[in-house]
Computed example of a mutant assay.
Amino acid sequence: MAISYSGLSAFHAVAEAQSFTGAARTRNVSQPTLSAQVRGLEDAYGVRLFDRAGRQVKLTPLGQSLFVITARLFAAEDEAQSLLAGSRTLQRGHLRIAADSATHVMSTLARMRERYPGLTFSLTIGNSSEVVDQIMDFAADVAITARANSDPRIHSIKLRSDDLIAFVSDQHELARHEHLPIEAFAGQDIVLRERGSITREVFENRLSVAGIKPANLLEVQSREAVREAVAFGFGIGVVFASEFRPEAGLKRIVITGAEFDVGEYVVCRAERQRLPLVRSFFETVQDL
């Protein structure tokens, strides 16, 4: 049985919008038409792809698996259209960016907006592991991450190097220091990002290599939460130097006695690096 393209396309639109109404508006068709296309796909195979409760729709387990496939399918279709006709002049188009810090990407987006006013952008912030996953899942076109990657499916260039630094509340016992050896972290409370964060991974590795054991570790889910926890005296925070913003009540400290240099990389799926939008992003990053 040949699968219905219109049915797949309708399913993907609804799954992406999480709404029949929103998908119909995006595709510029009536909701009954869209509903009929999805129902036709379900009936043809005797399956249920959505659980419907009023205006709310939720993917069934089978629907979730199908959505992974259609995401790849329609990403490839968009790629082909872009390559053949769409954005070669970059007069229009939409670029999806994932980054482990807004600090590392905003200057590039600002430059691209100046050069190509017709482009639109969406930006997702996550830890280094999450942004690579978004590239692999076709949820983002390009990403900036501190995680070096040797996967042959990923095209990567090194953007810059950055150093990890510590910072404390100005009431902390270590606030009088400009520099601290890594040994000074022994027995101290530390505030770090969640697992998957390259900041945490590198810092914990350096402590382990040096045989340093902190007292307590407070795990939080964002850089903003790290800053707030440190400001309220929960311990020593660790961030990239480029991410630290001087403000009242916080003191920056350089860590010595170990290598805290970490690379930052621009990545995309290898087969997508020649797309005009993706290529332009890489070129703009390198220009800056």
Rank of each mutant, 00 (worst) to 15 (best):
Y5N: 12
S6V: 11
F11Y: 08
V14T: 06
A17Q: 13
Q18F: 08
T21R: 14
G22E: 13
A23E: 02
N28E: 15
S30R: 14
S30P: 05
S30V: 04
L34Q: 01
S35M: 13
A36E: 11
R39F: 10
V47A: 10
R48I: 10
P61G: 09
G63L: 09
V68C: 05
V68M: 12
V68E: 15
A71N: 14
A75H: 11
G86N: 14
R92D: 06
L95I: 10
L95W: 02
I97R: 01
A99P: 00
D100G: 04
A102Q: 13
T103S: 07
T103P: 00
H104A: 10
M106K: 05
R111F: 09
E114M: 11
F121N: 08
T124C: 07
G126C: 09
S128P: 02
E130I: 14
E130N: 12
V131L: 08
Q134Y: 10
I135V: 15
D141Y: 02
A143E: 02
I144N: 01
A146D: 03
A146S: 14
P152D: 09
I154C: 09
K158S: 10
K158A: 13
R160P: 00
S161Q: 11
L164G: 00
A166Y: 01
V168F: 00
S169Q: 02
E173K: 12
A175N: 04
E183Y: 05
E183W: 05
V191E: 03
R193Y: 08
R195P: 03
G196K: 09
S197A: 14
T199K: 00
T199F: 01
R206C: 07
A210E: 07
I212S: 02
K213L: 10
K213P: 00
P214R: 05
N216F: 07
Q221R: 13
Q221T: 13
S222Y: 05
S222R: 06
E224K: 11
A225K: 14
V226G: 00
E228V: 13
V230C: 02
A231Q: 07
S242C: 10
F244I: 08
E247D: 10
A248E: 12
V254E: 14
V254H: 08
G257H: 06
A258W: 04
E259W: 05
D261Y: 05
V262M: 03
Y265W: 14
E271G: 07
R272M: 12
Q273F: 09
P276S: 10
V285L: 03
D287Q: 15
L288P: 04
